[in-house]
């Protein structure tokens, strides 16, 4: 009646078609070390591919794995008594983890060239601020002006203002503006994405920092920006994609009367101004 873990393992090993499930089954070798459901959920995305294939061909294994995901005693469960079709909705989190950057989730996008004419008016401008201090600002900062409003993603959320005001607030660090070569439609879609991002994302210095908001917005338009954790990386990626160019950049220097000590940490050198 009950299907033991060993028999499940044997089935999987003999088929050899479900790599994701192999990873999940590794946890079941020693029940005393079985991860809690929350811990196993982080592996859910990794095994979903195999799960989908298995659901079509081997429903009994899927039922067992789903039960194990919920913390059930998989090695003592009478799987055969539970018709898969009548089971409640699967407990495995079907949504991919939202903490990973899109480029990690689905790999790089194919190259896409800007379709906007090179001389067309540009309604979006990326502002790249130089690194300052030795703390969180020592990697620099990125903000974007779209349709006359400036959007800055910060630890306290979205800072919405005008470019002039924002440059005034940040008069202690130089900035370089890069007008983006986007069509009007793309610009409007980017603005919508930024607003949606601000409503749904939570700031994270690694996976949802000031750069990610712009990066993911451009990727939502189909541009391959790649993994850009630092402002300087995003700047280079935009130039490489012909979305921006150095000769069209605008330099916003700080007030000379204001002290702006440069960042001194080693990592700041990588993202500092040229």
């Amino acid at each position: 009646m009950g299907q033991s873990i060993d028999s499940i393992r044997q089935t999987v090993d003999t088929t050899g078609k479900m790599p994701g499930e192999d990873e999940a089954l590794a946890h079941f070798k020693a029940p005393s070390h079985r991860p809690q459901p929350a811990a196993l959920s982080t592996n859910a995305a990794a095994i979903l591919g195999g799960m989908e294939r298995a659901r079509k061909t081997k429903p009994e294994i899927v039922a067992t794995l789903a039960q194990a995901e919920t913390g059930g005693a998989a090695d003592q469960m009478p799987v055969a008594e539970i018709p898969v079709a009548s089971r409640p909705a699967r407990q495995i989190d079907q949504n991919p983890p939202t903490t990973l950057p899109p480029a990690l989730m689905r790999g790089p996008l194919p190259p896409k060239k800007p379709s906007a004419p090179i001389d067309a008016p540009r309604r979006a401008e990326l502002l790249v601020f130089q690194p300052v201090g030795d703390g969180r600002s020592s990697l620099g900062h990125v903000a974007i002006e779209i349709n006359g409003l400036l959007y800055s993603w910060t630890p306290s959320g979205l800072h919405l203002t005008t470019k002039e005001e924002y440059l005034g607030e940040n008069r202690f660090r130089d900035a370089t503006g890069y007008p983006l070569r986007l069509t009007d439609d793309e610009t409007d879609r980017l603005e919508s994405y930024v607003l949606k991002y601000a409503n749904t994302a939570k700031y994270n210095p690694i996976t949802a920092n000031c750069t990610d908001m712009v990066e993911q917005g451009l990727e939502s338009l189909g541009y391959s920006v790649g993994l850009t954790a630092l402002p300087a990386q995003l700047q280079k990626a935009l130039i490489a994609n012909q979305l921006a160019s150095e000769d069209r950049s605008i330099y916003y220097p700080t007030d000379p009367s204001r002290k702006s000590p440069p960042a001194t940490m080693p990592w700041s050198v990588m993202s500092g101004p040229k």
Partner: peptide, 19 residues
């Protein structure tokens, strides 16, 4: 930074993260 407050030169401390 040094700021002028009513004719006096004062020190203004600010956060690098947002000014």
């Amino acid at each position: 930074e040094n700021v002028d407050v009513n004719g006096r030169t004062c020190k203004r401390f600010f956060e690098y993260k947002d000014g």
